[in-house]
Simulated assay, not measured.
Amino acid sequence: MNLSKTIIERRSIRKYNGTPVEQELIVSLLYKAASLYVTEGTPQWRCIYYGTYESRQRLAVSITAKLKESKLGKLVLNKMIDFLTKKVAETPVHLVFIAESAENQRQSDENYASVCSIMQNFQLLGWEQGLGMLWYTDPIIQGKSFFKEIGLQEGERFAGILNIGYFDKMPRGRRRRIPAEQKWTVIGENDWKHSDTLQVTSQSVLDMLNQAIWAPNHGLRQPWRFIYVTNGKTKGKLQTLNRDISVPFLLVVAKEEADFHKREEDFAAISCLVQNFQLLAESKQWQVLRSIPEWIYDREQCKPFGIDPQERIVEVLELKGDDGYSNSVLAPPMVNITHL
């Protein structure tokens, strides 16, 4: 895979040509996507496969149930329901992704970050196979009927539906993203030396971020900013990682939106950005360790990094360059698929 090219050129696809998508291909890509997510723990997530016409019709009924409660005019409402029902039923495959429940917020966020990252891997792998996808989370579908259909349990988080199919026409190019340099803060020195060879520089990190920011997110919102930390003044803030912390690290920060749906979408987009970054880093044999440590939920511990009250740190990335490169998967990929 030409990773950088695929990340930048991938598009959301809304119109499919009706060519069947083999179930075996979907399952194979899911396992590959899970194996590309590097983690120390065992993320808890699951997906539901809708590949038959009957199952897609049932999904369509559950998706349109909330829409029927709308106060739109009857004519407009009926047209929307008919359009959406036909669209869902005729799309070759739908995959519904869910982050399973957890004991606390940090673990819940880990599960959610993992499923969003795996969805991004799946989209990239699918694009290489000529598969187009649309990541769909619109609140208008998120009603009781839909949640009952997918079996959403208390404490679980709906990550989205991937609509999947082959396509004939490539959409036009997307708008440019704001360069990472404009969302970039440095604490410490720009260029930092870990050993006799300079392995991680601010410019090399920025170059990689400017490819990684082509992560999927609704309306091309860019809710992230980056804090690159290279000195030891804040060393104590990372003790909970329980590993060598004499390396530069990157904090990926999100604006905390008041709207719950926007917050979840922004979290998902940042998880995809981080996954893009990690894949790009691995292709250059950098060792990048991503984590969601406990301390980021403590506002007092976040203050030294300049985190505003309306912001939160989403993930922490330790950047070890290619010194002792090892980015092997620390936990075997687990794929929990329900076929409906």
Rank of each mutant, 00 (worst) to 15 (best):
L3W: 01
R10S: 08
Q23T: 03
E24F: 00
L25H: 03
L30H: 04
K32A: 10
K32E: 14
S35R: 10
E40D: 06
T42M: 13
Q44M: 05
W45P: 02
C47N: 11
C47P: 00
E54W: 07
R58C: 12
T64C: 14
G73Y: 01
I81P: 01
K87I: 01
F97T: 01
A99L: 03
E100N: 12
S101Q: 12
S101E: 10
E103M: 10
N104H: 11
R106C: 05
D109I: 09
E110W: 06
N111H: 13
Q120H: 07
F146W: 09
E149W: 11
E154T: 14
E156G: 01
R157F: 11
A159V: 11
I161S: 08
G165Q: 07
D168P: 02
P179D: 09
K183E: 09
E189Q: 14
T197I: 15
Q203F: 08
V205E: 01
W214Q: 08
G219L: 10
F226W: 12
T230G: 05
T230E: 03
G232I: 14
G232Q: 15
K233V: 12
R243I: 11
I245H: 08
V247K: 02
F249P: 04
L251T: 06
V252Q: 05
A254P: 03
E264M: 14
L273H: 06
K284V: 10
Q287T: 15
R290C: 09
I292N: 02
Y297T: 02
E300H: 09
Q301E: 13
K303F: 09
K303W: 08
I313M: 03
V314N: 06
E315H: 07
D323L: 15
L330G: 15
L330N: 15
T338N: 13
